[in-house]
Design a protein around this nucleic acid. Structure first.
Lengths: 122, 122
DNA sequence: CTTTTCAATTTACGGCTGTAATCTTTGTTA
DNA sequence: TAACAAAGATTACAGCCGTAAATTGAAAAG
């Protein structure tokens, strides 16, 4: 029961704010995509069938809200990447970006802080 | 010119050792998949057309070797995930796994070492 | 030189995805 | 209550992907 790329953009809207009517989702996506309204209706329907969102009747329309949480989605996607490419662990990914000099100062500062935090609570 | 999941398993074999004949690739994949030989030939051909591997004639057969490096592939995949889900940065991904208590002791030790290294060379 | 035999190339095909048009249902208005 | 409008549901369709069978072409063997 996986979420496709296009579907995840619809989920993004609902994670940001919910419940929303289809029209409101369409309005929100008009900023970032040039999808037609029927396209978005299709994606909402596929998400419904997958159980990733639920719909509650509100007069003549529905209000949609996510059932799958953003954190769970993010975790599944990330774990899948780590499993495929980094032996399932986080550190080798960080090492890869370090070797490529792709860690920003902000990244490095935040990593330090995280490590410190973990040490404290341990 | 992106590599699909199935194709990436073929690339894995070639990254591990090359050049290899199609038969050798088939033999290597027999351990991890139950794909038939024609399936693997198809994947090799798609990779050829995409320019991800090259083939050098060797008598009646070809020897295949990767043109796309594993590091470049890993980087593209990882960057795409970070861009989609973590604002393009590494630290928020680490934070996510930290919050979920999904950092192994090994991860934590290695992260410390990495940070130390970066500090030294800076 | 003809036949056989492999390896590679072409073709196939159902499912998923991105994208959307059309149809149906149901609430609203004349 | 009959016609209209709006929302959702159904159908569509091409491209990619996983999976593989059929065809072609070229090397080896007789």
């Amino acid at each position: 029961m996986s979420i496709s790329d296009a579907e995840s953009l619809v989920m993004d809207v609902l994670w940001n704010e919910h419940p929303l009517s289809a029209d409101e989702v369409v309005a929100a996506l008009a900023k970032s995509t040039d999808w037609q309204e029927p396209t978005i209706k299709t994606l909402l329907n596929r998400l419904l069938n997958k159980g990733a969102v639920e719909a509650e009747r509100d007069g003549r329309r529905y209000l949609y809200r996510p059932l799958l949480s953003r954190a769970d989605y993010v975790h599944a996607e990330s774990k899948s990447l780590l499993d495929r490419l980094f032996d399932g662990r986080v550190a080798p990914l960080v090492a890869h970006f370090s070797e490529r000099r792709k860690l920003s100062k902000k990244d490095i500062a935040e990593l330090k802080r995280l490590i410190g935090e973990i040490d404290n609570e341990a």
